[in-house]
Amino acid sequence: MNIFRLFGDLSHLAAIAILLLKIWKTRSCAGVSGKTQLLFAVCFITRYIDLFLHFVSLYNTEKVMKLIYISASVFTCYLIFFKFKATYDGNHDSMRAEFLIVPAAGLACLINTKFDAIEILWTFSIYLEAVAILPQLFLISKTGEAETITSHYLFAQGSYRALYILNWIYRYHYESHVDTIAIVAGVVQTILYCDFFYLYITKVVKGQKIVLPA
């Protein structure tokens, strides 16, 4: 474990907590893409499937973190699609998730480390996570604005994988550890946030709200 991965995981936890709090406190999921949250839930379930297969005691924080990620993302989907369904902005959350899921699944079958079920599920999860934020960014471009708390959520969510890139550089240099698939997908994922990062740093940090040219 290194400082980059630690802060990356903390940033990821923060993102999940910020979103949950926003929906729970405001009792509304306006401005939140339900599709993105569904895709994240699928990512966690397919990536941590080992938890369900051979359930090992919660002997380390990693197992606990995996369970937190899965349960928090499923709970977030429950809030969006059931509890606060009335506030779900289905009209603007209109990116076709199939256009992300099918290519990720296809690519996972073509480019993977080993052609076996668990490894392909892990690879699918990595590819899907890289593009899972697109429906959320698409929704913001459609509505033309993002609530400040949603911007903080996106900043934390984007920073997590950006910090992982630093973690991979660190591990390459000090542990000669390379996980090419995760690195390439992580770079693509972080690049997708660049536009948002620019808006966040130039606006939200100064207390302004993000309003995209409609």
């Binding site: 990821h12 990693e62 080993k114 490894e119 000669s176 995760a182």
Partner: peptide, 10 residues
Amino acid sequence: DNGQLYHDEL
């Protein structure tokens, strides 16, 4: 690539 198959990151 170190060839290990389990992925030790979240």
